[in-house]
C-alpha cells in the first residue's frame, strides 16, 4: 500500500516492527535513529508511558536516497508489544508494505514469541493482508544473553515461510541495519513486481 507521489517523484513505504513486549522493537528504531545521518532522517516520535513502555507507536521517517529519478522514503513504526494493547496494535498495521518480526531469544520468552506471531497473523488478516504474501523478515534479538536459545532452534520454531533470518543485539546495533535493509529491499522488489 505504498503511497506514490508522482508529482514529487516520491515513493513512501511503511515498515512495521512487530513482536512481544520488551523484545527490542523500540531499541532497533533508536539505534537506526542515532546512527543515521541527520539529513536523511526526521524526528523519532515515541508515544510511550512514563516507564518508557510503548503506548501507541514509535515513528521514524527515513530518506534512503533515489533510485533513478524516484526518491525513496521509508516510514518505520513499532507497535506496542504488551498483550493488552492489541486494539492499538492493530491500527499500526494499516497500509503496511513490510513487517519485521523481532523475536526475544530468551527461553522464558519463547511462548510470547509464538503468541505474538499468531497475533500478527490475525491482525494482518483483519487489515486485509496475508502474512504469507507480504515482505517479512525475522530478527532473533538479544543474542548476547546467556539465556538465549540456540539460533537454529529458534529459526526452526519461529520461521513461518522461509523468510530471511537475522541474529541481532539491538542496543549494540548488531544485525539492526542488516534486518532493515533486507526488509526494505523486499518491499521495493515487491513494488516493482506489482508495477
Amino acid at each position: 500500500m505504498a503511497f506514490i507521489n508522482y508529482a514529487a517523484r516520491e515513493v513512501n513505504c511503511k515498515i512495521v516492527y512487530y513482536g512481544p513486549g520488551l523484545c527490542g522493537k523500540t531499541t532497533n528504531l533508536q539505534w537506526i535513529y542515532e546512527k543515521t545521518n541527520p539529513t536523511n532522517k526526521g524526528k523519532l516520535i515515541s508515544l510511550a508511558t512514563e516507564t518508557d513502555r510503548t503506548l501507541f507507536f514509535d515513528f521514524l521517517p527515513l530518506d534512503l536516497g533515489s533510485i533513478g529519478s524516484l526518491k525513496v522514503r521509508f516510514h518505520l513504526y513499532t507497535v506496542p508489544g504488551q498483550v493488552f494493547y492489541n486494539a492499538s496494535r492493530k491500527l499500526i498495521l494499516k497500509g503496511i508494505d513490510g513487517v519485521i518480526f523481532v523475536a526475544d531469544s530468551q527461553e522464558a520468552r519463547f511462548d510470547a514469541n509464538l503468541e505474538s506471531i499468531d497475533n500478527l497473523d490475525k491482525n494482518l488478516k483483519e487489515q486485509g493482508f496475508d502474512l504469507m504474501k507480504i515482505p517479512y523478515v525475522l530478527q532473533l534479538n538479544k543474542r548476547d544473553l546467556p539465556s538465549a536459545m540456540p539460533a537454529d532452534v529458534l529459526t526452526k520454531e519461529l520461521r513461518v515461510k522461509g523468510e530471511p533470518v537475522f541474529e541481532a543485539v539491538a542496543p549494540k546495533g548488531v544485525g539492526v541495519y542488516e534486518t532493515l535493509k533486507e526488509c526494505a529491499k523486499m518491499v521495493l522488489k515487491e513494488l516493482r513486481r506489482n508495477a
Partner: peptide, 15 residues
C-alpha cells in the same frame, strides 16, 4: 515508467 528501469543492483546500491 518509474520502475521499469530499476534493477536489483539499483536497489542494492541504495544501501
Amino acid at each position: 515508467a518509474a520502475f521499469a528501469e530499476i534493477t536489483d543492483d539499483d536497489i542494492d546500491n541504495l544501501f
